[in-house]
Design a protein around this nucleic acid. Structure first.
Lengths: 387, 387
DNA sequence: CCTTTATATCGAAACGTTTCGATATTTTTT
DNA sequence: AAAAAATATCGAAACGTTTCGATATAAAGG
């Protein structure tokens, strides 16, 4: 809009500069942004196109362009299409940095999980992560991933995005050191837990209890009477719920008594090591059970392996059911009957939940979080050949 | 520095406002940033502390604070300590958004891998990712992860960070659709490939050939004469290199002839499906080999399983060597002798390489990339019980 | 026909940094 | 002793957006 003048010292330079442009030196009465854009492209200096160039191209003010791309306020149909054409033509993409700066939001969401969880053999948390990543695209968020060590020391191990306040909210997947959780909530950063619960914070979890109950009901319906329970890390809320589900299912079945002697648990992570210990205990049980519910697939695999070594026929002599439905479950020998957890969906839901929380936060700022809920998502019994 | 005045309409408001502050209404001759800071904290409106407040606290200009925290230019020892104290006191963290805006850099690095690679059973690429994540902290970068589908369609599947130019560089892990690679290079974004090579682009790869040669040399040294090679996806540069290493090792051994009949390959990913096909072929070989080199651990596991079914004793009747050293290798039966790939290190190195590239790019902008190299990192033969 | 309301557009300020001269002081060189 | 160079500090402009009035026109209401 505003006309401008260029003062060039030599004729040579003058011809050089204006030679590549759409207008001559004499008629430099042109929008300065258009000039800069042309000048830069002529020199090969590819600057990012900004809202200013779009505005110049569409012959409107920058504020109008802003209104168009954010779909706010009043804009006439005519200018809207004009601006959109300009945006398209110059292939304009708004600068994230500038937006962050003015909106005082980062648009980033942190995803935190324990490093040992993340690299373990079965890609459980990896799949959850991918679920959040997928949903993040819809919600126009970026995910920053950070793993934390298991005994966590605040300050030292603090993820960079937390230290630099470079996230709007944080997703915590799986059990982590409570010190980390309090560190983030103390920092005033909204948090949603995934596959874990802690002190009433918003969480997205699996309906462990119902899932387990269905599985055990199935075993009972198939006429199995001696059903063992193999568990580990029983102070984990999910594990507690699974045991609870187990007890509930058993207690409903009139024909079964004396449960406790068939509930086997060990300390530590429910991994293959625990699985081996538990299998040993299982196979020395007397009377020998006809079915076993394992608290996760890793333990079930151990049972399968050890049964194969001892020549115990599955499922005829022993029915085995796991939990999680990791990819390997479908190709174990025999394929494992297990409870499917929709991991991607878990991640998706968690992100959407957090996203909503952030929305609410800004709309009525400082409002109390209205009775933070746990969202439960159902798990599904998948029948394969081990039960 | 600049004195200011506040005009408050009522006495009540006047007392309210100044009541919580360190100074009275009469002596409002104070730095305005200090006032705002105090005022905000009084109201409980926790604004992020900015460089301005630090400057006010340390009684210097904002530019001086900037010089101190970036360790640039001339700053006297006295003011430096004063500024550092202020920074510490107010626990100031520079705003990423503002920095990005002015520096025209995002500080982000994209990590791209195929989704099926990322969620596969063995956390190979997950570990590479964690390596880059680790190094990213040192280099003050954030990692944005995105997976892409295997037949990739540019435009539709384009990761958001690429579309929005929200990364300074991209790391591509494992084989991806060439269309994606050209899309990023066309966009002028520096890229480093990890565990894959393509058209002379900078890459960080494993020394596949030497690794394989060492393994086969070891088998030969142990007196194995009939050595088979099980491979898949042989158009992959890494696989080619492994086969080349195999051939080189064999050709050096005078006592071995007729290799080709013992080189078995199938198409498609080198996963357990390929492993089963290859194992079938292997076990129908005549004369039956005394050792087998598998192009990765997944295939080796299949061999192990099928050997167990057929009662073939490992390593006595058949020595088995894999490649990758995934976590499961140490607990297979028998534990797998394999070639260890330092996955975290691979990721670390790739990030450092990319980081250097970015540095160079800005320093002498527009310079040609001086003979882009592939960095090879050595693999190590790990002796366990299968060979 | 005048007043209010809705629609349309714009300019300028703000967000929180970094960097580029400008200026002032001290030290070194001639 | 004067000139040049090094040191120290500062103010202002810039980065690319969004948002807040202001202003102008068109439509609606009395």
């Amino acid at each position: 809009m505003r006309p401008f003048k260029i003062f060039l010292k030599t004729d040579l330079f003058r011809s050089k500069v204006c030679g590549g442009l759409d207008f001559t030196y004499d008629e430099c009465n042109i929008n300065i942004e258009t000039f800069r854009y042309q000048f830069d492209t002529m020199l090969g200096t590819q600057r990012k196109v900004t809202i200013k160039e779009v505005a110049a191209e569409a012959n409107v003010a920058v504020s109008t362009v802003s209104l168009v791309i954010n779909q706010k306020g009043y804009v006439s149909e005519a200018t809207r299409t004009r601006v959109e054409a300009a945006t398209e033509k110059l292939s304009f993409v708004p600068s994230n940095a500038a937006r962050q700066l003015i909106s005082r939001k980062t648009g980033n969401i942190g995803f935190v999980t324990r490093s040992d969880h993340f690299v373990r053999n079965e890609p459980f948390y990896t799949q959850i992560f991918l679920g959040t990543e997928f949903e993040a695209r819809n919600q126009n968020h970026y995910i920053l991933l950070s793993t934390i060590p298991s005994p966590y020391s605040p300050g030292t191990d603090t993820p960079r995005f937390l230290r630099e306040r470079n996230v709007d909210g944080i997703l915590i997947a799986g059990r982590v050191d409570p010190l980390f959780i309090t560190e983030t909530t103390d920092a005033g950063i909204p948090v949603v837990l995934v596959d874990f619960e802690y002190s009433g914070l918003p969480a997205v979890i699996i309906d462990n209890q119902t899932g387990t109950r269905e599985a055990v009901d199935y075993l009972i319906a198939k006429g199995r009477v001696h059903i063992a329970f193999l568990g580990a890390e029983m102070d984990h809320p999910s594990m507690e719920a699974r045991l609870e589900g187990f007890r509930l299912a058993i207690s409903k079945a009139a024909e079964i008594r004396d449960i406790e002697s068939e509930i086997l648990v060990v300390d530590g992570e429910p991994d293959h090591v625990a699985g081996q210990k538990l299998s040993m205990q299982l196979f020395s049980l007397d009377p020998f059970p006809t079915a076993v519910f394992c608290v996760n697939d890793a333990i079930a695999f151990s049972v399968l392996e050890m049964a194969a070594e001892r020549g115990i026929v599955i499922p005829d002599e022993l029915a085995v059911i796991g939990f999680d439905d990791v990819p390997r479950s479908s190709r174990s020998v025999p394929p494992l009957t297990t409870i499917r957890v929709y991991k991607e969906q878990l991640g998706e839901l968690a992100l959407r939940y957090l996203s909503e929380l952030l929305q609410d936060n800004t709309e009525n700022s400082g409002s109390f979080d209205r009775g933070s809920h746990s969202i439960q998502i159902p798990a599904e019994l998948i029948l394969r050949e081990s039960a």
